[in-house]
Design a binder for these strands. Structure first.
Lengths: 147, 147
DNA sequence: CTCAATTGAATTGTGGGCAATATACTTCAA
DNA sequence: TTGAAGTATATTGCCCACAATTCAATTGAG
């Protein structure tokens, strides 16, 4: 192993660890904000999609969130048990499960409206830097996707 | 709820989701590279620390990785069962568990030496942008930490 | 010196992620 | 029309993440 390569095996120098840690820290920051809504961060992400499109199936939701049914099925069952969504098999194609926002689920949007701004303020970073960070993350995602 | 605030409740506009998705995608990208080493990404992170500092206790490791004993104890037991580390209670203070790299654990570093470069190439982004991304992630982490 | 407070690790319980597999349903071509 | 291939969801099993709790060991104030 060359000394040159060895240098890269240092935790503090790795972008990946920074991204990994920042992502977990962010999820932890959401925890307090989401506690009053009784949602976890992945559940909140699912609700974000449903607030835009109140009815879609598991596959469509998975494509938006980049998550598979092994993750979504139990998550959606938990949302269902809280009365926020309904899960019903499609009549046309019985393989498909339609997810629908309930009235209670729709109502929750009001309580969530302050969250994006709250997180923005907690980040303490200028908007421009956050937008650039988002852009780089999106680009990185697409590059790794393409492989 | 103002329409202004409502606009922010859109998945695609959220930095947090971009960061979250990029982080998961990155971990998935490591999976193939780490498979020959029989390591998961969090296990690889622990090994990175140990390759720099072959002996430290659980608390010290947790401080470096921002993980607690609830995560590390089972992870370290798995590394132990693979013969990569040893776990022994300190004689001076029996509350402390010392983690030590085994010879096999040290030897694994050679097989890992190409990984940082491989990931860099897979990212397809210029070094400068990656460094800037890392810097923003580190800054975001510190800001959220400070609350 | 003693006992209350603190500390380090482990355990428990809940909730993601995700690969692999299973199952039921649908489609399509021979 | 039938059987093979493809599709949508669910299940299982393993691993991480973390809050809350427990427990033993240590420390320190009085």
């Amino acid at each position: 192993m060359s000394a040159e390569h060895e240098d890269y095996l240092v935790l503090e120098k790795q972008l990946c660890f920074s991204l990994y840690s920042a992502s977990h820290k962010l999820v932890r920051s959401y925890r307090l904000l989401l506690e009053p809504l009784d949602l976890t961060y992945p559940q909140y992400l699912a609700m974000l999609v449903l607030w835009q499109q109140p009815e879609l199936n598991v596959k469509e939701l998975g494509e938006k969130l980049y998550l598979d049914s092994g993750t979504l099925t139990p998550l959606l069952k938990r949302l269902e048990s809280k009365g926020l969504v309904s899960r019903t098999r499609s009549v046309q194609d019985e393989r498909v499960v339609q997810i629908r926002l309930t009235e209670q689920g729709k109502a929750l949007k009001t309580q969530a409206s302050h969250i994006p701004m709250a997180i923005f303020q907690q980040s303490g970073l200028p908007l421009e830097q956050l937008l650039q960070l988002k852009h780089s993350c999106d680009l990185l995602f697409k590059q790794l996707e393409a492989l």
